[in-house]
Amino acid sequence: MIDTVYIEKEIESHPRTKEVCERFPKARRVFCERYGEVFNPNAQNFRLQKQKPALILAKKFDHFILKTQKGYGIGGDHNFYFSHMLNCLYDCRYCFLQGMYRSAHFVFFVNYEDFEHAIEKQIKEAGSEESYFFSGYDCDSLAFEPVTGFTSHFLPLFARHPKAWLELRTKSIQIKPLLEMKPVQNCVIAFSLTPTEIGAALEAKTPAVTKRLEAMEKLQERGWKLGLRFDPLIYHAQYQEQYERLFREVFKKIKIPSVHSVSLGPFRLPKQGYETMFKLYPEAKLFAGPLEERKGMVSYAQKIEEEMLNFITSRLLEYVPKNIFFPCLI
């Protein structure tokens, strides 16, 4: 699976570096000074690298947690995101990471303890108010779990701080560690969901939606709080019947008391990201369709977007109470 592991010399002896290397005993090991030497050069092609990405083990130095954009949240006022990894195992054609990074290699920051200190500092600063921490912005929170041990490390931290919420955003069914531990009540396991046909066309290498639903059911039975993320909403000729069917399937299995929050967001990309993605995949119908630029963002033509948002919102609210519904309109 991983043929090459690049390792920053400074973290060569870090216990997490050693653990990861032991998982890939046959991979070639290449040492570098800083991960940017491998990850950032101009002359790289994300599409080619996605065929066989390497793993880069690195140390993050600053900006461990960042404020989310306004309009992004699931009910809290203090919203932050953090990324223990850059890039994702999956290959979703709509994913903004393709337009953001030049390299498709996976960067894994091994210094969890520094993230932990930054999170605890932020929790302390928030005092008695709740803070929300989102993981899964620059990577899938669970997909690399067997390698990173991310949840095993961070969930106990949040269990100690009930005023701090953690959202794990995922399409993965790597839920074994979650099933083996006591549910953390201030943690939301948030699954991204799209109709089966859209998943098949645009979400390469991801578990099928039916598999994600099975994983969610298991988590529900164990008492974990779930998040439902219908994001991005993808428009096409049959979208109405497909989203209606998706909602029927989801709410047949997932019961509202287990659901912490439901959100949706239309397909939108920063203009520069769209330009890069179009160059990488000029033959992709997703990028060729009825998109237009508004305020530096590329999205479906306004009429289409409004029609789609209104339709999907109305259908979703047949199942979901308004107080747990958070449309994301960034």
Binding site: D3, T4, Y6, R28, V30, F31, C32, E33, E37, V38, P41, Q44, L48, Q49, Q51, K52, A54, S103, H105
Partner: peptide, 21 residues
């Protein structure tokens, strides 16, 4: 080459091995 270093410039490049070498 999986890494190329210019000894004089102390600069390195990392040719991505996207195929099985």
């Amino acid at each position: 080459a999986h890494k190329i270093t210019d000894q004089k410039l102390a600069k390195s490049w990392y040719p991505p091995l996207v195929f099985e070498a």
